[in-house]
């Protein structure tokens, strides 16, 4: 009885969570310029517009990809030494550094966005895409920081001792033991940052100063004019990317453990 009730509850939750997404995705099939549900004159023409023919969207998409890839890479590169120092030394100083790096993610993004807007206007980076990349890298630094730290905690210290007794210096141990063993966690952190950067627009709105736009920013900017089915195509593309990325993380990494599940239980 309780079990049936539980399954019903979970199914209901899944339906509610999926509902708006399904509706947006199906709206992408609309033939006209207006969003209808159920879609009218179903067609795939909007996909062509979004990915190939409409310069507004193709440019936004390429910006999105550049910012997401660039910022995720940068975030991982910054997170590694911070996480490594924290794991290696466990010092107060490195803990503070890690805490500092997590601040932007923990506070309302609109405030960080406003601050970055001022910041880049002083440095002259406002409206340039590299300022956008750096901003997102800092905003999402917390994600690879957490996943890499989790990965490092999983490294057996006896492995490091074993490597040392076989002649490995710290550098060699890092390259041959630590890096390969934490690779799934590094990749997970990269993907988390990538996907969230892909979808973020508030911070990007303040940093871009309308000089360039990403896909979500483009949608945000044209919000006042109403939705078009082409925007729904973007939603389809984004949710697909998310599902592929997180499935990959689940397939090659331990997703439950990354999310903080107890390792001992299955």
């Amino acid at each position: 009885m309780g079990r049936v009730f539980g399954h019903l509850f979970m199914a209901l939750a899944a339906i509610v969570v999926a509902l708006p997404i399904v509706i947006v995705c199906s709206a992408a099939l609309n033939g006209g310029r207006t969003m209808f549900f159920p879609p009218q004159d179903p067609t795939l023409a909007r996909f062509g517009e979004f990915f190939f023919s409409e310069p507004v969207w193709t440019r936004a998409l390429s910006n999105s990809v550049i910012v997401a890839l660039g910022s995720a890479t940068l975030a991982v590169l910054m997170a590694w030494p911070i996480a490594y120092a924290l794991w290696k030394t466990g010092s107060r100083q490195s803990a503070m550094l890690a805490g500092l790096g997590s601040i932007p993610f923990a506070l309302p993004p609109i405030v960080f966005g406003v601050g970055l807007g001022f910041f880049w206007s002083f440095l002259g980076g406002l409206g340039s895409i590299w300022a956008g990349i750096i901003s997102h890298a800092v905003l999402f630094l917390a994600l690879p920081l957490v996943t890499i730290s989790i990965g490092l905690q999983a490294v057996d210290r006896a492995h490091l001792d074993a490597a040392a007794t076989m002649g490995a210096t710290e550098g060699v141990t890092f390259r041959t033991i630590i890096l390969p063993q934490t690779l799934p966690y590094t990749i997970s952190g990269f993907f988390f940052a990538l996907v969230l950067s892909f979808n973020e627009f508030i911070v990007m709105f303040f940093v871009s100063a309308s000089a360039f736009s990403t896909v979500t920013l483009q949608i945000f900017n044209s919000l006042r004019n109403g939705y078009t089915p082409t925007m729904a195509v973007a939603a389809v593309a984004f949710i697909t990317v998310s599902i592929i990325v997180f499935s990959a993380v689940a397939r090659w990494g331990d997703l439950p453990r990354l999310m903080g599940a107890d390792q001992s239980r299955n």
Binding site: D156, A158, A168
Partner: peptide
């Protein structure tokens, strides 16, 4: 330091590297 002494050591947990094959483990040094 240990890496210059290179005394072979077998650990309680064996500390075999799970990301390497048996041969690569043995050939590590």
């Amino acid at each position: 330091p240990a890496h210059k002494r290179k005394f072979g050591m077998v650990f309680q947990s064996f500390a075999l590297f799970p990301h390497l094959t048996v041969r690569d483990n043995v050939a590590y040094a």
